[in-house]
Amino acid sequence: MELTVKDTEQNMDYWLQRPYLSEATRSIMQAQEVLIVPEEDLREYTTPLFPSNLMVLYDELKQYFKVEAAINDEDYHELSLNSKVHKYGKFVVIAVIVPTFVTVLGNYISDKLKHEDPKDEIQLDITVQGDQGQAKTVHFKGTADNFNKVAEKVKQIAREQEDEHRTDTAHAATTKK
């Protein structure tokens, strides 16, 4: 199992500035709770790519959140790798909705894999973005029954970022006085 956490600059603002996005796409990407972001420079293909069947997850997430993908509609392509690792993509999620997000995502994965081999691996990245734009990425590759470890880690990061914001706000209020 791989479960890593690292600081990242690839928050929502970063993805809004990607050069391949049209102004129309940037406009619909504004003020989202979840951004689904692509893999870039994968296999030397010139446009960014998403994992196979991500469209289905996009539809599912849209039922619960304000969600968009960082790609123009006409440039949306899925890469089918055909190994047995189930890739669920990369997400940037604002901290406050992380608990609900991991529940929805966990239920989706559980439903998709209920007729698959329990030894199959899943892979995904979740970037948690705090109020000030600070971001940390959790990368996971492992069996679905370990997804709870990802959920706990992501929720912990979200709590830390919210605590940081409260501390900063309290400090700013104290300083103003």
Partner: peptide, 29 residues
């Protein structure tokens, strides 16, 4: 052997409409 390919143009098998991320025909795979 595991093939790797990019799906570039996808159509719905029911109505033959193009399937894109934001424009759908309403048919569910």
């Amino acid at each position: 052997g595991s093939s790797e390919y990019i799906k570039e143009i996808v159509r719905c098998g029911i109505c033959n409409e193009l399937v894109t991320l934001r424009k759908r025909c309403g048919h569910v795979k």
